[in-house]
Simulated scan of single mutants.
Amino acid sequence: MADTYLEPTLKNLTDTILEQRVDLAKSITKKQNKRYERLEALEENLLELRIELVTLYGESLSMTIEERQERIEHWGTKTGKACAEMGISLDSMLREVPEYRTAIGNIIKETAIAQNYSLSNLYDVLAILDRTVDDVVYYFCLPFVEVQTQTLKASQDQMLEMSVPVVPIDAGVAVLPLVGTIDTHRAKLIMEESLNKCLDLNVSEFVIDLSGVAMVDTFVAHKLFQVIDSLKLIGVKPKISGISPEMAQTIIQLGLNFSDVPSYATLKSALKEIGFEKTK
């Protein structure tokens, strides 16, 4: 609870800040638009949020610690999520923090001079402002980062799905061209996509092309065996193409046996075996 001797001082400051909240929010909006031109398109929405924030700063000075904490947490959860969903960068939002601290600090200084605050009163008021600013940043960043993390994960999942492109090239025939590194998560996705797409497309001949895979180690080979065995169980005839001489030597050195799986040096030769000839 606020100290009794501070209550008139804090109430007076709250009223003064609330009287200037719109002008203060407009001033910060103008500065931010100058720094970040992309924010101009969101000016109307952001101005409203800034007015809310200045109001929160002003009213927080007259609140108890418990009331202040509850209000800031509620504001931060709502506003942090809203700003992240608008696609605003966190650095641009954090750039505003000193503006509020400076502007409200100036109001406190001017009021303190005009009303002859004691040094002790001024220090206590500034301590409340500093703590409020710190809490606003903390509770704003939590939901903001959470939304951005979820968005990033969704993008990564989408990119992973695109990295396992099962391509139907004719009735009953499909190709899976793999490129890059195969890790645990991607290996699982390869298994799921291969089986699901083969069933959905009624595939009988399935070529896994390794031309774009830089390295085949024990892990990758083991996962390929799992995919191949699973495809066989659902009636699909798997084939492997794109095995380079270096890759073949690695497979032999690892003691792996691909003898029961048709393998080809190139995708072209695999498709030719299935019956695809270049039409002249």
Rank of each mutant, 00 (worst) to 15 (best):
I113W: 12
L195G: 02
H222T: 15
V173W: 01
A171Q: 12
G212L: 07
V213I: 15
D135M: 11
T218V: 10
I51L: 04
I17C: 03
R131G: 10
K78L: 12
Y36F: 15
P262T: 05
S211P: 00
I169A: 04
A2D: 04
E73N: 07
S60C: 12
I104W: 07
R50Q: 06
S204V: 06
V145S: 05
L267F: 05
F258W: 08
C83M: 13
L178K: 01
T181G: 00
D170K: 07
L39C: 05
M159K: 04
L122D: 09
L53H: 05
D157R: 13
K81E: 14
L122S: 10
E44F: 08
L122V: 00
Q158F: 13
L6W: 09
L61A: 04
V207Q: 02
N257S: 10
A171I: 08
T14L: 02
P245N: 08
S204G: 07
Q20T: 04
Q253T: 14
A103T: 08
H185M: 11
H222Q: 15
D124W: 07
Y57R: 02
N121H: 11
R38V: 13
L178M: 08
S60L: 05
A25L: 03
N12V: 00
E99Y: 13
P245F: 10
V22H: 10
E59Y: 03
L42V: 03
L201H: 05
P262K: 04
L129A: 07
S60G: 11
I51Q: 09
A25P: 01
K268N: 14
I182H: 02
M63R: 12
A174R: 00
D200T: 11
P98H: 09
S269P: 00
V227H: 02
L210Y: 01
T250D: 02
R35C: 03
L13N: 00
P8V: 11
D170S: 15
T279S: 12
D91Q: 07
Y57W: 09
M1A: 14
